[in-house]
């Protein structure tokens, strides 16, 4: 399974904190995004925001990185701490 996490404003926009996806369905972060857009077309406005950041297993990641079972992918808006 691949765990997908949505944080902060994005979680509220999607109305979803996270989902699990079978690792046979997607093999990279970009495929995962495509899968989400097909499955949840109502999320496209929010998931396609240019400023959205992605992390793979708690590290900032680019969308061409491969995924394997047990991975955690997070999508979130620009950070505003401090």
């Amino acid at each position: 399974m691949i765990r997908v996490v949505f944080l902060a404003q994005l979680r509220e926009q999607l109305g979803c904190a996270g989902i699990e996806i079978d690792s046979t369905e997607v093999s990279s972060i970009s495929e995962l995004k495509q899968y989400l857009l097909e499955r949840y077309p109502e999320w496209s406005e929010f998931l396609e925001q240019k400023k959205l950041l992605i992390a793979l297993n708690h590290e900032y990641a680019r969308s061409d990185l491969p995924l394997v079972s047990g991975d955690e992918v997070a999508f979130f808006p620009p950070v505003t701490g401090g």
């Binding site: 902060a8 979130f76 620009p78 950070v79 701490g81 401090g82």
Partner: peptide
């Protein structure tokens, strides 16, 4: 440390204001 904390560390602020709750936008100056 502060400059990178503000632009890299995953924290998000939501303000409680008279107009309701507002997620803070990133700042170009940061």
């Amino acid at each position: 440390l502060m400059d990178f904390l503000k632009t890299q560390a995953p924290f998000w602020k939501k303000e409680i204001t008279e107009q309701g709750e507002v997620w803070v936008d990133e700042h170009q100056k940061d």
